[in-house]
Design a protein around this nucleic acid. Sequence first.
DNA 1: AGAAATTCATTGCAAATGCAACGACATTGA
DNA 2: TCAATGTCGTTGCATTTGCAATGAATTTCT
Lengths: 151, 151
Amino acid sequence: MSGYDLPDFDLEKYLPYRFTALAARLSDEMAKSYKYKYGISIPEWRVLVNVGYAKDPSIRDIERRVSLEKSKVSRAAAKLEAKGLITKDVDPSDRRLLKLNLTPKGVSLLGELVPIAQSFQTELGATLGDKESMLQVALDRLTDKMNDKTL
Amino acid sequence: MSGYDLPDFDLEKYLPYRFTALAARLSDEMAKSYKYKYGISIPEWRVLVNVGYAKDPSIRDIERRVSLEKSKVSRAAAKLEAKGLITKDVDPSDRRLLKLNLTPKGVSLLGELVPIAQSFQTELGATLGDKESMLQVALDRLTDKMNDKTL
DNA sequence: AGAAATTCATTGCAAATGCAACGACATTGA
DNA sequence: TCAATGTCGTTGCATTTGCAATGAATTTCT
């Protein structure tokens, strides 16, 4: 018959595989809404939204929060700065750290982008119905689990 | 006060963001188990497992199933072939397609890798408890939704 | 205090990636 | 039938990425 002599394995339910595929689909779909129109890349969007919605994040903060390599964050931040969307200032209380902040231009761009993200999220919520809160709990659990591993 | 004049937005619950971060954590954690020891990369693992557990997949099939760029699949497949883990044969019924198959060496390697994936999956299942099936349903819904978009 | 170890952000460089272009094959439709 | 269109896998090339190394600042330990 067809098939090899391999252990049973249900690839369709394998979580790392499912999350990876779905995350790529969701991110690419969102990117279509801003990439061409606003000329920013996926890492730039991720950094920008973190600067807007986390308090004074450093490069390292964003690395941890978004699971984005610090060199990637650093380069995305440099591009956002070059575009006049954020500023980078050394943190006076710890001069190793940078405090990233939005410029008025950055605030204005985020103000356009966020509603797009909101409506995408709403759309996803609609397809999930009452399962969304369960999903959020499941994601919390898995995230905590992975945090423990990294300690 | 701190904060900018931005629309309300709960970044912590924003699904594309959550999935992306979690997928990266899960994949990297798994990769630690095989990357060094078996010398294969993440894309190689993904292609290999698809060749093993989907029936005669072509490059294009894998592209769709895994949301992996076809050039990425093509190059991963070339490397797996060079390592003697898979074969690539033109499909006689449609000579544009390749049929990817495991070699005995590939079967043997997958036979070692899959149990590692299994036990990781079991571990994740344990932290999710009875929520795992809900999670799978939620993932199904979102996947279907994204498939509709791409049509 | 001050030497050693740690933490941040940046950068150089080799490797990986994405995208468009290409050749081979298949399908459509006049 | 055969020209036009579409699909599949590969590849060239510019860009992006990851990783290790670096320099600056801080913390830890003796």
